[in-house]
Design a protein around this nucleic acid. Sequence first.
DNA 1: AAATCGGGGAC
DNA 2: GTCCCAGATTT
Length: 362
Amino acid sequence: MQHEKLNEFNISQFQQDLINWFKENQRTLPWRENKDPYRVWVSEIMLQQTRVDTVIPYYLNFMREFPTLEDLAYAEEDRILKAWEGLGYYSRVRNLQTAVREVVEEYNAAVPDTLKEISALKGVGPYTAGAILSIAYAKPEPAVDGNVMRVLSRVLEIDEDIAKAKTRKTFEAIIYDLISKEDPSSFNQGLMELGALICTPTSPGCLLCPVREHCMAYNKGIQDTLPVKSKKKKAKRKLMAAFVVKDEDGKVLIEKRPDKGLLAGLWQFPNVEVESHSFNKEEMAEALSLAIGKPISIRDRIQKVEHVFSHIVWDIDVYTAVIPIKEWEKEGQRFVDQYQIEDFAFPVSHQKIIKHYFSEAF
DNA sequence: AAATCGGGGAC
DNA sequence: GTCCCAGATTT
């Protein structure tokens, strides 16, 4: 039994109009050069919650560094994180490597082509599984992302809240009936490309839309009221103190973040959360001692950094400190100069500190 | 079901 | 400032 939303809907004509438009108007993108499952996979992970224009240079560099599944499987963690530096959601690349290693070991380096097997891989959720299966293996599986929910909410006048997790299942159920069995790749990519180029979040270009005739929202003139999406609450502010600790050679102390949680595995300057930003040298010295496990006195406050995440805002005061004698370098800590520091992956917030510190004569 | 997990670009 | 982006995982 077909989904009720598709009664009186011309499915085959919709498929044809969408696929023809996609074939004529799709952008030339590096991951569309061929259908190599590994290349498709990497692109889909990078594209999660990330714009095409942002991904392109990262994708080109990543495929140059890790051209094959095996290259990625055997790479060191600091190298893959460096390749991901600035892209955000860093667990994506750690999960990708975990999954690639499983494919090498369990599937003889061939990306599995069944929903059950591919969905079991780390970091491969419902969207990514459908995207790889349809694009690389021509399997008629739905790949429901934000674009698809926006486009179909308008075409079929669906007013479920797309911010709710279960709403994705509604669209998946519809797409099983709607998807082209002859060309599921162009169908899925066509929906996404349409969302990116025409059926945009604000002021959709309906007059240029290839499926305008099929669109219930357009025919009612209510395309601007869809999709329905509840708002998320705003980020919480955290006051931080970060420290550039310099040794007698002018090298600075960096440390590796824990392998779980926010910015896992990236490198940073020692830092702590503070109650307030009053510049009190004794207070800050105590905070620094807590951060690196050594008593050291503060020299100056040199910079203020504000960094906005989705759910947190870091308000960082940056201090310098000098140690007279270099006497330690514990596990997960390094003293590096301004050239060595380039080999380590830093969160953007601390890249701002590097840039400022090494461009001035402190 | 809600929170966590980055960063940037468009408005 | 707000929204949202080819989402997945954890709580």
